[in-house]
């Protein structure tokens, strides 16, 4: 099976400074991969490079094939049709991920309409509204009638993140990139969003690229792990293997930290 996302020898530089060096991994359709590393290790840049949205000041080299198409060096115009259909992204901060001056219903509706136009489906108001409502239902937003007419500042952080997920789903992507989607949320909301992502990914048979600095969070959501430090891959493997036999010192410290936290919880109990 050809991989959905195939990154080979990816390097990202700004001027003389190297941010990501010789990165390679691939992701098959339907597979769930976790990209883990500390802040500034190049996780998010890798995700942006995967869909060709790196800021102009950053130069990428190597090869990124998304759904069989070369992303690096491609013209922006050629990438527009690839985005959304091949991959969609859920961001860390749900407040800035939603346009503050657009009601939730219209915001999700824009994404629905774009996809419908592409599929030459119905773009009349009634069918868009129906699809928006179905999406809000799928991400388990309560009271969709109120949410559709709400401004982003009128709903809670967890609800905003659900709305952002609904927007990503509206594109019907083959790959969902989740860039620290739970970091800005409190612990209970975090668990709900993780469960929601897990359910949606299996229901829709999407591939998932889950980016996080939080090992326990990632471990529950994915099958395979890629551990990054200072722009390099330091370890890859199945979640169970990495957890039980971490090879690299950085991974060992991550696992030890997660264990220490678990132990502290047990003592507290």
């Amino acid at each position: 099976m050809t991989p959905l996302l195939d990154i080979h020898g990816l390097s990202i530089r700004t001027g003389e400074k190297s941010l990501v060096t010789d990165l390679s991994f691939s992701l098959s359709p339907g597979e769930r991969l976790g990209l883990i590393g500390e802040s500034g290790s190049g996780k998010s840049l890798t995700a942006l490079a995967a869909i060709g949205l790196l800021p102009d000041a950053l130069k990428a080299s190597g090869s990124v094939r998304l759904d069989g198409r070369q992303v690096i060096g491609a013209r922006d115009r050629d990438l527009v049709p690839l985005r959304g259909t091949a991959a969609a992204v859920v961001f860390q901060e749900p407040l800035t991920a939603l346009d503050p001056l657009m009601k939730i219903g219209r915001q999700v509706g824009e994404a629905v309409k774009r996809r419908a136009t592409r599929d030459r489906g119905a773009t009349d108001k009634a069918s868009i509204t129906r699809k928006v409502r179905a999406l809000l239902d799928q991400v388990a937003l309560p009271d969709p009638d109120r949410i559709i007419n709400a401004w982003p500042h009128e709903i809670s952080g967890g609800q905003r993140q659900r709305a952002a997920i609904a927007m990503a789903l509206a594109c019907k992507p083959k790959l969902l990139i989740a860039d620290e989607p739970t970091t800005a949320l409190d612990v209970t909301t975090q668990a709900e969003i993780l469960a929601l992502l897990a359910r949606l990914v299996s229901e829709r048979d999407m591939a998932l690229l889950f980016i996080s600095h939080d090992l326990p969070v990632v471990a529950g959501a994915v099958d395979r792990l890629v551990v990054m430090q200072h722009g390099h891959i330091v370890e890859t493997g199945l979640v169970g293997d990495v957890f039980n036999q971490p090879n690299h010192p950085y991974t060992q410290s991550l696992v030890a930290a997660a264990r220490a936290f678990d132990d502290a919880l047990e003592i507290a109990e």
């Binding site: 527009v80 049709p81 985005r83 959304g84 259909t85 824009e110 774009r114």
Partner: peptide, 22 residues
């Protein structure tokens, strides 16, 4: 610089669309 611009771009909005919508 906002995430929703990136999100909109990722879902396939052209620059003209971004100017008009956002």
């Amino acid at each position: 610089a906002m995430d929703y611009i990136t999100a909109s771009r990722i879902s396939g909005t052209s620059w003209i669309g971004v100017i008009r919508i956002h």
